[in-house]
Design a protein around this nucleic acid. Structure first.
Lengths: 367, 367
DNA sequence: GTGAAAGCGCTAACAC
DNA sequence: GTGTTAGCGCTTTCAC
């Protein structure tokens, strides 16, 4: 009684059933006008009856386009990238394309293999968060005619489209905000990945300090050694930052490169009985979903993930249609400083013992 | 000087360059033994020289397998699903397959379109987190010969493989833990999605209460109305739970269906000057990355995301190889109660004014 | 060991 | 309008 799954129906099945040629059936299903209404109706009816689904493989082979885009991303567990995945998938699907997902986990080797997979699969283009350590393999992909859009991190050597976040500006604003609140001795705690996002945030920090006439001692920019535990490493940063900061001399304020660092710091400071922002003010980076609901709500930089994602796909689509050699377009989208209690507008001089402010922005916490 | 991207090299290019037949080249590149060593060397050299990459489309067409698996998932921004994506992608890639990603965002309509995409793309199989509201479209996919593995939520009507989490047990353990800590009036705060995971947690809660001889009044199981804001909706639950709980009469302890609910509650209780766990004990669900670093570290149920993901892919691979009609296998992986300060082992009777315990499990917070 | 022929399922070009 | 032919790039017979 168990029917083995019959082979998938093809155009020919419809054709023979109706006494037509494969070609006519093909045209009847495509919306060509060169088919009589009655034939078309019959074909469509038969197609529906036997559950015909066009074979994308075959179609792609002859058309020369797989109608598929690649997404090469480093770490889906990073909330920013998770949102990016969602927005990109949505946009790609809306355009009738499929999405091939490749995770590199910050490994150049994985990324090189990913580029081979992209070429083999003959994707029409790819959205890429590059590891940035090397890029020869990306050059090869681009030279083989697959348009690339770099996201969040650029590879300037390759003259591809790029859309990212103005990390420098976000960092500048966070730092300036802390200075405006009265901080003079500031510390920047950054990730230790060799990527431009980190570098840009450092630049923003330095610029804000300089603009305020404050010196930037060497030890005021620190990178937290982040071990990579395994290939699915979720952010270990709270712990890393917590540990790292234990040996630090604490300044007036700490600018962090991501919300997890801030989380670890908040914990450490609480244990030491220090008040935030009374004793030390803190800013995060990323506006993770929990940031607004911490006991000390976190002032942080909100990243426009959805906008970055959809812009990237749009750039890629334009590139696919244009096919010409327009100049590469680089877009930086401005992040937004979200001010909360960990670094308030005006810095109160009293210790701020009570922590009873209502949650801000109850209806504005959009993506 | 701008060379247009030359058409991708094919077997024929190599063949003509070397004065061989396409066939021989094909065999030389595949590891067939029916080629002389010298020919093989020449072919491989030429292939490398011109940067030949096999065309997966063509190969798939003749082989009848695209070497591609589908992943249909509801919401990448849910940390559990983010980890799931990573672990699944890793495993799929390790097996030499590609991964097609489809996001449904809990929408049946999206899911139905996703099934069409799966059939069109001729994936060899799919890992699916089903929306669960309807499943006729899944039946069609399965009947067309594409093996399915449901993940995290089951569709029992379809007799497919399934791997999930023993949500009932997790909930049972969290509830029992609170009861053992002295709680008598318990409240369960659940998501309002019509899915089995929620139902299972409710069952676990009730069972734990019954086993402890406690009654379960109707109003002790509550679902938090969670509005869906947009298609990229990150968890809005902290806010929703915060709002919802404002009008609640507070019990001894609250079991929540996810960590975001717990986060919202912690905030509300702090504002009211209530102590956790002194006045109200709380458990979360999910062990999100921030849970251990909250000011009141959260007792919560850790989900075995990586294990669920890799198991799902393994099941699918076996199914692909077997091709027989073995009985469907259902696997529930046991989650782990992680005990932290929000619901400590022994419930202290003093108000627990200090919150200075060092972060637990500094080296065990693996995925 | 190598080549010739056939075909995977589909679409584009050309006849009629 | 519809059918015939050809071919996308590759792999698998089956000769030689």
């Amino acid at each position: 009684m168990t029917e083995g799954p019959r082979p998938r129906p093809t155009l020919r099945d419809i054709a023979t059933a109706l006494g037509l040629s494969v070609n006519t059936v093909s045209r009847a299903l495509g919306d060509k006008d060169s088919v009589s209404a009655s034939t078309r109706a019959a074909v469509q009816a038969e197609a529906a009856r036997i559950g015909y689904v066009p074979n994308t493989l075959a179609r792609s082979l002859v058309l020369g386009s797989a109608m598929t885009l690649g997404l090469v991303i480093t770490n889906p567990s990073n909330p920013f990238y998770a949102q990016l995945i969602s927005s990109i998938e949505l946009r790609v699907r809306a355009q009738g394309y499929s999405l091939l997902l490749l995770v590199t986990d910050e490994s150049v080797e994985n990324e090189q293999r990913a580029t081979e997979a992209l070429r083999r699969s003959a994707v029409d283009g790819a959205v890429v968060v590059p590891v940035q350590a090397e890029w020869d393999h990306w050059r090869r992909v681009r030279d083989s005619g697959i348009p690339l859009v770099f996201v969040n991190r650029d590879v300037p050597e390759l003259d591809c489209d790029m859309v990212g976040v103005d990390y420098e500006r976000g960092s500048y604003e966070a730092t300036s905000h802390l200075i405006a609140g009265g901080a003079r001795r500031l510390l920047l705690l950054e990730e230790d990945l060799p990527i431009t996002t980190t570098a840009d945030r450092i630049t923003g920090f330095r610029r804000a300090m300089a603009d305020a006439g404050l010196a930037v001692p060497d030890d005021s920019v620190r990178t937290v050694p982040t071990r990579r535990y395994d290939s699915l490493a979720l952010p270990w940063q709270p712990e890393e930052a917590y540990r790292f900061a234990q040996s630090l001399e604490l300044p007036d304020a700490i600018v962090t490169g991501n919300d997890y660092f801030a989380l670890g710091l908040l914990r450490l400071l609480a244990e030491r009985g220090l008040d935030v922002p009374g004793d030390v003010a803190i800013t995060g980076y990323g506006d993770h979903p929990y940031a607004a609901y911490l006991q000390t709500p976190l002032t942080t930089v909100r990243l426009p993930a959805a906008e970055v994602g959809s812009t990237a796909v749009d750039l890629l689509m334009q590139r696919l249609k244009a096919s010409g050699a327009e100049r590469p377009r680089k877009t930086l989208i401005r992040p937004e400083l979200v001010i909360r209690a960990s670094a308030p507008i005006a810095r109160p001089s009293q210790p701020t013992a009570e922590s009873g402010s209502p949650p801000e922005e109850p209806a504005m916490h959009r993506l």
